[in-house]
C-alpha cells in the first residue's frame, strides 16, 4: 500500500487545468499547424494561419487559447494499492479545479442547477470518471471541454444489422449537422459498443488519446482512416467557410456490447482539443 496525500492531487490538477488551456499537447499542435499545407482554398489557408498565430500568442502573452476554457473533465485511473489520505478525493479534485481556474485567469463557465442556471463562479464541479486499476500509481487526465462542440455531439442506438456502414453514416451525419458550429477543423472521438452511457464515455476518452496513435484493432484502425478521408470530402473546411480540412483526426474506442445492440457515440471537439496527463 502506498500513501498519496490529497495536497499532491490538488496541486497537480491545478497545474494541469492551467497548462491545458495555454498550450496544446504536441500531437494536437502539430496537426493544427500541419493543416495549412493540406488546405487548398485561400480563405481556408488564411483561417488556419490565424489558428497557428493564435497558438503563438496564447503561449507568448499568456492568454488562453480559447475563451471557452471549458468544463473540467477529469479521468482518474486509481491504482488499487494506493491509499488516499487527507481530504475526500472528490473534494480534492474540485479544489484543484477551483484553484486552477482562479489562478490561471480561466473562465468560470459552470452553472449549478441546470434549469435555474446560476454561475458557481469557480468552475466547479468538474466531471470525474474513475477507473480502479492494478498498481500503486494514480494517473490523472485533465481535459477541459468547450461546449460549442460538445453541443454538436450525439449518441445513436443503432441495430446490429446497421453494421459498419451504419456507424459511418452516423459519424458523417453528426459532422455535417455540426458544420461551422463546432469550430472546424474538428477532432472526432467515437465510442462504439457498450451501452448507452458507456459509448458516450468511450467517445470522450477517444478524444484524450494521442492523435499520433491509431486503434490497435486492425479493422477499427481502417475505419478511423476511412472516416477521416470521408469527413474531409464534405467540403465544410476551416471555420466552415469551405475547404478540405474539416477534421484533423478520428479516434475510435470500442467495447463489447449486447446481442441486440450497436451503440455509437460521436463526441466532437474543436481544434482546441485539450488534454494533459500525469502519473502520481
Amino acid at each position: 500500500m502506498r500513501n498519496l496525500h490529497t495536497d499532491e492531487i490538488i496541486k497537480n490538477i491545478k497545474e494541469m487545468c492551467i497548462e491545458a488551456n495555454y498550450k496544446l499537447a504536441s500531437d494536437v499542435e502539430e496537426r493544427v499547424r500541419g493543416a495549412y499545407d493540406q488546405e487548398a482554398t485561400a480563405l481556408g489557408k488564411q483561417i488556419l494561419g490565424q489558428l497557428a498565430e493564435n497558438l503563438d500568442i496564447a503561449s507568448e502573452d499568456s492568454i488562453p487559447i480559447c475563451q471557452d476554457t471549458g468544463m473540467a473533465i477529469i479521468f482518474i485511473k486509481l491504482g488499487q494499492d494506493v491509499h488516499i489520505e487527507g481530504m475526500d478525493l472528490e473534494d480534492a479534485v474540485n479544489e484543484g479545479i477551483r484553484q486552477g481556474y482562479e489562478e490561471g485567469y480561466l473562465r468560470k463557465s459552470v452553472v449549478g442547477d441546470p434549469l435555474i442556471r446560476i454561475n458557481t463562479k469557480d468552475n466547479t464541479p468538474g466531471i470525474i470518471h474513475y477507473e480502479i486499476v492494478a498498481g500503486d500509481r494514480v494517473e490523472i487526465t485533465v481535459a477541459p471541454k468547450g461546449f460549442g462542440s460538445e453541443n454538436m455531439s450525439r449518441v445513436y442506438m443503432l441495430k446490429p444489422s446497421d453494421g459498419v456502414e451504419g456507424v459511418k453514416r452516423a459519424v458523417l451525419e453528426t459532422v455535417k449537422l455540426a458544420g461551422p458550429n463546432a469550430c472546424p477543423p474538428i477532432v472526432v472521438g467515437v465510442g462504439i459498443g457498450g451501452s448507452f452511457e458507456k459509448c458516450a464515455v468511450l467517445s470522450k476518452k477517444a478524444l484524450t488519446r494521442s492523435m499520433d496513435t491509431s486503434s490497435p484493432i486492425e479493422h477499427i484502425r481502417e475505419l478511423e482512416d476511412e472516416l477521416l478521408l470521408e469527413i474531409n470530402q464534405l467540403g465544410i473546411g476551416p471555420g466552415g467557410f469551405g475547404g478540405k480540412v474539416t477534421a484533423l483526426g478520428v479516434n475510435i474506442e470500442t467495447y463489447p456490447t449486447h446481442i441486440a445492440g450497436l451503440p455509437v457515440a460521436i463526441n466532437i471537439c474543436c481544434h482546441v482539443n485539450r488534454h494533459v496527463s500525469r502519473v502520481l
Partner: peptide, 13 residues
Amino acid sequence: FAAVGGAGALLSK
C-alpha cells in the same frame, strides 16, 4: 459576421 472560432488569443489583440 463570423469571427474565427477558437482564435480567442489572437482576437483579444
